[in-house]
Simulated assay, not measured.
Amino acid sequence: MSLQLPIWRAADGSVVSCTEKVKVMTENLQELQQVAQDAFEDAILMGCDEQQVRAFLVEMMQGLDNPYQS
């Protein structure tokens, strides 16, 4: 599956236009997708319920902390 990445925006709505920043985001998210896909497939092969694994992955992403928030 190929990721359809959005145009990245800053909190003020401006476009993140730095080529290097966008490249790093793309690489990080492609790597994250592959790790998540591998974990998902392993869970299915081990007999875990697909919907439970999907729900957990969503919950895990929603629980990420922003260490830069004031």
Rank of each mutant, 00 (worst) to 15 (best):
V35S: 11
R54L: 08
M25Y: 11
L29M: 10
Q34W: 00
I44Y: 01
E59W: 06
I44F: 02
N28M: 12
S2F: 12
E20A: 14
Q69D: 11
A55L: 04
Q34R: 14
Q33G: 03
L57Q: 05
Q51S: 14
L45P: 03
M61R: 01
A11R: 12
S70P: 15
F56I: 07
S14P: 02
D12N: 08
W8H: 07
M60K: 12
D38E: 14
T26P: 04
Q62R: 07
V58N: 09
Q4P: 09
D12P: 05
M25C: 11
D12E: 04
S14K: 01
L3I: 07
G47H: 00
Q33T: 02
G63F: 00
D65L: 12
E20S: 14
T19I: 12
D42T: 12
A39Y: 00
L57D: 05
D12I: 05
Q4W: 00
L45W: 08
A43V: 02
L32M: 11
W8E: 00
T19Y: 10
F56Q: 09
Q30S: 09
L45M: 12
M1T: 14
R54C: 07
R54K: 14
M25P: 03
V24S: 12
Q69T: 09
D12K: 04
M46E: 15
V58H: 05
V24P: 03
S70H: 13
R9E: 06
W8M: 05
S14I: 00
L29K: 02
Q52V: 11
Q51D: 14
M1K: 15
L3C: 00
D65K: 15
G47Q: 04
A55R: 08
Q33E: 05
L32Y: 03
Q52H: 10
C48I: 00
C18M: 15
Q4N: 15
A11K: 10
P6F: 04
K21R: 15
V24A: 15
V15Y: 01
T19E: 15
F56D: 03
I7L: 09
C48G: 07
Q34E: 11
L64K: 00
V53Q: 02
D49N: 14
V16H: 06
E20T: 13
V22H: 00
K21Y: 11
A36F: 05
D38P: 02
K23A: 11
L3D: 00
N28L: 11
S2W: 10
L3T: 04
L3Q: 08
C48F: 12
M61G: 09
A43L: 03
D42F: 09
A11I: 07
E59Y: 01
E59H: 07
D65N: 11
E27S: 11
V22S: 03
V15N: 02
G47P: 02
D38N: 14
M60E: 07
Q33M: 04
V22Y: 06
C18T: 13
A43H: 01
L32F: 03
Q37Y: 10
Y68P: 01
I44E: 02
E50W: 01
S17Q: 12
K23W: 00
C18I: 14
S2R: 15
V58E: 05
Q37W: 09
D12Y: 04
E27R: 11
E20F: 09
V16K: 06
D38K: 12
V35P: 02
V53C: 06
G47M: 05
R9Q: 09
R9V: 07
E41I: 07
A55H: 04
Q51W: 08
Q37H: 13
E41C: 08
Q33C: 05
